[in-house]
């Protein structure tokens, strides 16, 4: 019989599992690594279920944990491997990449531009674009003020735009 605490955890787990998995898949090379990140994140959440925030704040809190779990892994990765693996057409659950190289080339240009930003800028942009978080939620994930998150996002967008322009110039990707 589950107690109240466990029932509440289970409900939040079911509601957020997919989003946390997506978050991890976006930031790891291999699906297996992403699943490890998810496991570690929810294990932390389970242990700290008494303080797990409610409602809309649950997901940013979990992203914050996942962010740190991935950071822990990331320090021991070779960047070149990561870059390559991100584009691996076979193992990733992203059939579109393989289906259309024109699109793959464009995606590669975007990711390549993203990779040239500093890690914090990358994370802010990913959280905004891929997780669709608000500034307040981003600040929750990154442990900074909302103002700081807004400023970081503004700067990161600007930097990404610059890098995309450079990428365009370098590789001559055609307009999509």
């Amino acid at each position: 019989m589950l107690n109240r605490d466990e029932r509440r955890f289970r409900k939040r787990y079911e509601a957020t599992y997919g989003a946390v998995l997506a978050y991890a898949l976006r930031r790891t090379d291999q699906p297996a690594d992403a699943h490890d990140v998810v496991a570690e994140t929810f294990l932390t959440a389970w242990r700290r279920r008494a303080v797990l925030p409610e409602g809309e704040r649950t997901l940013p809190w979990l992203y914050g944990v996942a962010y740190r779990v991935i950071a822990n892994q990331a320090r021991s990765r070779r960047r070149s491997e990561r870059l390559s693996a991100q584009l691996a057409a076979q193992p990733r659950p992203s059939p579109q990449v393989e289906a259309d190289v024109l699109r793959a080339a464009e995606l590669e240009a975007i990711r390549s531009a993203l990779e040239r930003l500093d890690p914090m800028e990358q994370e802010v942009l990913r959280l905004a674009a891929w997780e669709g978080l608000s500034r307040a939620e981003i600040s929750d994930v990154l442990g900074c003020s909302e103002n700081a998150a807004t400023l970081r996002l503004h700067r990161a967008r600007k930097r990404l735009a610059e890098e995309l322009a450079k990428e365009n110039e370098l590789t001559g990707h055609e307009s999509a």
């Binding site: 599992y17 898949l25 659950p93 992203s94 990449v97 905004a128 891929w130 967008r157 990404l160």
Partner: peptide
């Protein structure tokens, strides 16, 4: 790749899992 497009919008296109059906919290693996 159009330079005029919002970089965030372009980045959304590059979301590696955007078109993927992911298991939800009630799936067997979850």
């Amino acid at each position: 790749m159009s330079e005029a497009r919002d970089p965030l919008e372009l980045l959304r296109l590059a979301d590696p899992v955007a078109s993927t059906d992911l298991p939800d919290g009630r799936s067997q693996e979850a």
